[in-house]
């Protein structure tokens, strides 16, 4: 109960701080952010773009973990948990792609330039889409759960390549790529103290929000199934 109110206040604070705090050359007050070269006024997107990208990977990881659990124990509740995670995952993936494209327009000039990291978030979107397409084409419950679990595991094997390896070895525009000398504002700590604080608060708030939504999601699925089974049994 209390943590939900805490989450509400936290995410409200993050929205206020992330959107309205001014970015000035030499920050003097606690509510001012420093100017980062190359980003300038657009830096505020970082508070929303990075958490969505982070959550889409977390959601995919959870979906795969519960898929593995389903294959081990054959408990359909695990399949419901995997499905709820994937639903949130695809939403956050779309949000990450859109926020990334908007940021790209300001920072690099065009919405899409097939930069390795943009390509990899798009590949993740394709994986999610394929997973849902596979699920909708199978009627039987156990078969659907088994086959989508197998596909989820195979697809997860390609994710480390997309998220960690490819963007770092190939040349690209996104921070952290092979020819990026300053390695981005997070790793190099170009953000000053209070900017880092807002950033980590944002990450925490979104993660708590995700777990809450996932909890509600899989419970709805399990109860909907149970109620359906009771009413059809007569």
């Amino acid at each position: 109960m209390a943590w939900k109110i805490f989450l509400f206040l936290l995410l409200s604070f993050v929205s206020v701080a992330g959107i309205a705090f001014p970015i000035v050359e030499n920050p003097t007050h606690w509510y001012e952010f420093p100017l980062i070269k190359g980003l300038e006024q657009n830096a505020k997107i970082i508070f929303f773009h990075v958490p969505t990208a982070w959550l889409t990977v977390v959601a995919f990881l959870m979906s795969t973990i519960f898929s593995i659990r389903y294959l081990a124990r054959k408990n359909l509740n695990d399949d419901a948990k995997s499905y709820a995670a994937a639903q949130l995952g695809i939403i956050f993936c779309i949000l990450a792609t859109i926020t990334g494209a908007v940021w790209a327009k300001f920072a690099w000039g065009s919405y899409w330039s097939w930069d390795p990291r943009q390509t990899s978030i798009f590949a993740l979107l394709l994986i999610y889409g394929a997973w849902f397409a596979l699920r909708s084409s199978i009627e039987s419950e156990e078969k659907r759960a088994t086959l989508s679990a197998v596909y989820s595991i195979i697809a997860f094997l390609t994710v480390p390549f997309f998220i960690f390896i490819m963007p770092r070895i190939m040349k690209g525009l996104h921070p952290g790529s092979a020819d990026d000398t300053n390695a981005g504002p997070i790793v190099n700590f170009k953000m000053n103290g209070n900017m880092q604080l807002i950033f980590f608060l944002s990450l925490t708030a979104f993660t708590i929000l995700y777990f809450w939504m996932w909890n509600l999601g899989y419970k709805s699925l399990i109860f909907k199934d149970k109620i359906n089974k009771i009413y059809t049994k007569g």
Partner: peptide, 19 residues
């Protein structure tokens, strides 16, 4: 083991083959 096999095959394979 699924339905709509022909159209589903490229959809599933492409993300796996992409790397």
């Amino acid at each position: 083991k699924a339905g709509s096999k022909g159209t589903l095959y490229p959809v599933l394979s492409f993300p796996i083959l992409l790397p």
